[in-house]
Design a protein around this nucleic acid. Structure first.
Length: 461
DNA sequence: GTTAATGATTTCGG
DNA sequence: CCGAAATCATTAAC
């Protein structure tokens, strides 16, 4: 409100006053007492009108001061150094125009008039543009930013230079980890994208700042000859920045796309599986066959196995899922394997228990562990052993008793199913529904699927 | 090239 | 979310 009146006042006749002066009647009187203000204003306005009539050439010359920089270089002061160069570039311009220009530039009322004009312009621009100036951060660009950050394209460099990142990834394959080979390929490609992205981003930023500087210089230069407020320059800069950021968004968008394609081609092609190494499958099989009655490792056990095998927990889960289903589907096929691991486990168990206590009962439930996880279902190992013992494999003495007790109740055959009727142990602990169940309640056995070897129970023999 | 083995993914039920 | 079952896709042996 106050601004408005002040502005109008300035237009009306107080042109020579800076806004700060307006409120001071004394200053007005002072000005008027000089006896000139009216004439001054009229003078200036007339000259302005004259300039608006200038020819196109003149106007152009005025608009591109850097092409004739020294033309009217004397800023607000009467520094007339530029005048010397007038002879060369200024030759094309009419002398009277030069004169008018100069006179206007050096007019003592010019700064005040400029400030008023700036203010008016400011108001007009504001009213035209409205409040839509400060747009909130574009959600689109924020999404892109987040994604690039998540993908490791933007944000802090991981492991040094982009090329080094790939090298590091390749070097990381030194651990007994598989899958890092195609992973390193992926990382290399990602690093490439990353590099291009950063390169382009830098270029954009450089271009942006260059252009901004250029425009700012231009405007500053022009502000000597036409009313340009710093605010206006600021606004222009923000417009430029917005333009450039929209270009940047395109860059980000295409980078995101590239990353997505890369992902789908590499990471999602992780079906390109590698077989686990021998040691890993051994560890897994050991656990599986030593927990045959309940081959469901707990979360901790899975983690432990994963660590041991250099694979992920979900890979362990996959493995057990596959193993269970495939074992169940064809127990006969796995017989040999089962025996193998039973011996392994049993021997280990025997060694441990022999060391632990020789006089004591061999049935130390938790002693048998080939690894750091405990063998909670030691019985499984014995079950597998049963058939082995018949084949003349030597078993540690402490275990022999156990096996012997089993012998009393079982008939030794190579077959795996003969225990079904014994009610003592089931080799696979599968119930009628062919699913694993808790060892605590022995299965109500039906005859298993036509497995290998005939079924003969001891009781019937 | 064929085939078995095998790790991963998908589908479905609880 | 977990596990069973089916299925896919790759690897490795022949």
């Amino acid at each position: 409100m106050d601004d408005q009146t002040r502005m109008l006042a300035g237009l009306g006749g107080l042109g020579g006053l800076t806004p700060a002066d307006v409120g001071d009647p004394d200053s007005v009187r002072k000005q008027q007492s000089l006896g000139q203000p009216q004439q001054d204003i009229g003078d200036i306005l007339q000259q302005i009108m004259a300039i608006t009539d200038e020819s196109l050439d003149e106007a152009q010359a005025r608009c591109w001061p850097e092409e004739a920089p020294a033309q009217w270089g004397g800023t607000d002061g009467p520094s007339e150094g530029g005048g010397a160069g007038r002879g060369t570039a200024g030759g094309a311009l009419p002398l009277n125009f030069q004169h008018r220009k100069h006179a206007l530039n050096c007019h003592r009322m010019k700064p005040a008039l400029f400030s008023v004009l700036c203010e008016i312009k400011e108001k007009t621009v504001l009213s035209i543009r409205g409040v839509q100036e400060e747009d909130p951060p574009d959600p689109q660009i924020m999404r892109l930013d987040n994604m690039l950050l998540a993908e490791g394209v933007s944000g802090p460099e991981k492991g040094g230079g982009s090329a080094a990142a790939a090298a590091a990834a390749a070097a990381a394959g030194g651990s007994p980890n598989d899958g890092s080979i195609e992973h390193s390929d992926y990382r290399a490609k990602l690093a490439q994208i990353r590099q291009i992205y950063h390169c382009e981003l830098e270029k954009y930023e450089q271009a942006c700042s260059e252009f901004t500087n250029h425009v700012m210089n231009l405007l500053r230069e022009q502000s000597r000859t036409r009313p340009i407020s710093p605010k206006e320059i600021e606004r222009m800069v923000s417009i430029i920045h917005r333009k450039f950021s929209s270009i940047q968004m395109q860059l980000k968008q295409s980078t995101c796309e590239a990353v997505m394609i890369l992902r789908s081609r590499f990471l999602d092609a992780r079906r390109k599986r590698r077989n686990f190494n021998k040691q890993a499958t051994e560890v897994l099989n050991e656990y599986f066959y030593s927990h045959l009655s309940n081959p469901y490792p707990s979360e901790e056990a899975k983690e432990e196995l994963a660590k041991k095998c250099g694979i992920t927990v979900s890979q362990v889960s996959n493995w057990f899922g596959n193993k269970r289903i495939r074992y169940k589907k064809n127990i006969g096929k796995f017989q040999e394997e089962a025996n193998l691991y039973a011996v392994k486990t049993a021997v280990d168990a025997a060694n441990v228990s022999a060391q632990a206590s020789q006089a004591n009962s061999p049935a130390t439930p938790n002693s048998g562990s080939s690894g750091s996880y405990s063998l909670s279902h030691t019985g499984d190992a014995y079950l597998n052993l049963r058939s082995l013992n018949g084949e003349g494999l030597s078993v540690a003495p402490s275990l022999q008793q156990q096996v012997d007790t089993l012998h009393r109740a079982t008939h030794l055959t190579a077959g795996y199913e003969e225990l079904s009727g014994s009610g003592l142990f089931t080799p696979h602990s599968l119930d009628a529904n062919n699913s694993w169940q808790d060892t605590t309640n022995p299965p109500s056995v039906t005859s298993p699927p036509g497995g290998p070897g005939s079924i003969h129970s001891d009781t019937s023999n």
